[in-house]
């Protein structure tokens, strides 16, 4: 699937409370997925999934979103350490690593 990392209101408010605190960690470890995709993968709200790229892997929790809001095949996650761990460091001589719209493997945890 394709991962999009971005800002959210909760990410913004929780980082003010502290980036080492539980709320920020929870917000940045929640992956929004289309309900159709979750059904296809046998996932329900709050289930853990492992996201993997060539750079690394993280375990995050699923949050369901309507298919109308989030297209099939797309995962949204708030910017934070988990999304950064999946990014590559190649910037194509721009300074900017690809931080949105990169492919990740999705695996249900605890099958």
């Amino acid at each position: 699937m394709v991962l999009i990392a971005g800002r959210t209101s909760k990410q913004g408010t929780s980082l003010n409370a502290g980036k080492l605190k539980d709320e920020y960690r929870e917000v940045t470890s929640t992956a929004e997925m289309n309900t159709d995709d979750m059904g296809r993968l046998g996932l329900k709200e709050g289930d853990e999934v492992r996201l993997r790229t060539a750079e690394g892997e993280v375990v995050v929790r699923c949050a369901a979103r309507d298919a109308e809001d989030l297209p099939s095949g797309m995962i949204f996650i708030a910017y934070g350490p988990p999304s950064s761990r999946l990014m590559g460091s190649d910037t194509a001589l721009s300074g900017m690593p690809i931080s949105k719209n990169f492919e990740v493997e999705v695996e249900r945890v605890g099958k």
Partner: peptide, 12 residues
């Protein structure tokens, strides 16, 4: 020189 003197690149 982006890609050379940008921090992600030079640290990586």
């Amino acid at each position: 020189n982006p890609g050379e003197f940008t921090t992600v690149d030079l640290l990586s």
